[in-house]
């Protein structure tokens, strides 16, 4: 019997990924850092840590908090800035053959436009607009929670960037459908959803007859948000035609299939990378194994089968 070739590839506006398993921004560094745990270039792509025009030192105080089934972070977009990224990180990505999506964030529309222009100029094939970071004072999430503002921002970025433009959506909105439509109408090639859910962790200690309270307010992620993400993806898939990259607590291969079943074309792995640093590579292997075992020759065949049920 002839061996069927296995095609796991995903293509979005010229950006080719060898498979639909991507690692989420902020959980995987800038380039090949996770090579100490697994083979990063085997992944569909990595999304870089969120990059701003200037370097940022992030928030002071406690930044992470473990919750039941997840975590809260308030890193505050600490990053090295686009200039250092281009100089120090981009060459490593290219040298290692790692496909990547540049995650960009800004305080003003001009920041996003400049970053998009820089990405265009440097022939970066995919960018993800972070319009949903809940952890910074200005910008960012303000763009992602108002449909008109988001529409205008995406439109402006679109004019300055011709390759794959992904908009990362916040779940902290009144209407998932309207915000997704705004991204699509603005000219996005795809959306990724969801970013973290606004949350708060409280730790109380009772010492010498007095309470001591520590709080961490920021973005909730991990397995506990998977139902929120499934619902969000399910709803937006009914109103937009552009590809959806699902994010939200994806840890196991079953999770990946569940998101395919509500319309996702690819997935991002975030918090699971901390628990199982080789989680993403394992999902690539699990996906391959499943497709071989059950005779699926390409990804869309599998996605249609699981979505059609």
């Amino acid at each position: 019997m002839a061996v069927k070739t296995l095609d796991l590839s995903v293509e979005i506006n010229g950006f080719e990924m060898k498979n639909p398993i991507i690692t989420a921004s902020g959980t995987y560094g800038y380039n090949n850092e996770f090579d100490v745990f697994c083979d990063v270039k085997a992944l569909g792509a990595i999304v870089t840590k969120g990059i701003t025009l200037e370097p940022r030192s992030g928030n002071e105080g406690e930044r992470i908090f473990e919750t039941t089934g997840g975590m809260i972070n308030r890193i505050g977009l600490e990053n090295i800035g686009i200039e250092a990224f281009l100089k120090e990180k981009l060459p490593v990505l290219n040298k290692c053959g790692i496909d990547f999506i540049l995650n960009i964030a800004g305080n003003t529309p001009e920041d996003y436009i400049k970053l998009a222009q820089i990405a265009q100029k440097n022939n970066i094939k995919a960018i993800e607009l972070n319009v949903s970071c809940p952890n910074v004072q200005h910008g960012c999430i303000e763009f992602g929670t108002n449909k008109q503002t988001l529409y205008e921002l995406v439109q402006m970025v679109r004019k300055n960037y011709e390759h794959c433009l992904i908009v990362k959506l916040s779940p902290n909105v009144t209407s998932a459908e309207e915000i997704a439509e705004a991204a699509q109408n603005g000219g996005a090639d795809a959306v990724s959803a969801i970013n973290t859910v606004r949350g708060m962790g409280v730790k109380l200690d009772f010492l010498n007859g007095r309470f001591k309270k520590t709080t961490v307010s920021g973005g909730l992620s991990g397995q506990c948000i998977k139902p929120v993400a499934l619902s969000f993806v399910d709803r937006i898939s009914k109103v937009i035609d552009i590809p959806i990259i699902a994010i939200g607590g994806i840890t196991s291969f079953e999770d990946v299939l569940e998101f395919f079943s509500v319309g996702a074309k690819a997935v991002q792995i975030g918090t699971a990378n901390f628990t199982h640093p080789n989680a993403a590579e394992k999902l690539v292997n699990d996906l391959k194994k499943f497709m071989i075992q059950y005779n699926f020759s390409n990804l869309s065949e599998l996605q249609q089968a699981v979505k059609g049920v």
């Binding site: 800038y30 850092e33 996770f34 840590k49 930044r63 901390f274």
Partner: peptide, 14 residues
């Protein structure tokens, strides 16, 4: 400090 990634990428334990 409470740590998430263990390899310096998540910036949670600075």
């Amino acid at each position: 400090k409470v740590m998430a990634c263990g390899i310096g990428v998540c910036r949670g334990c600075v």
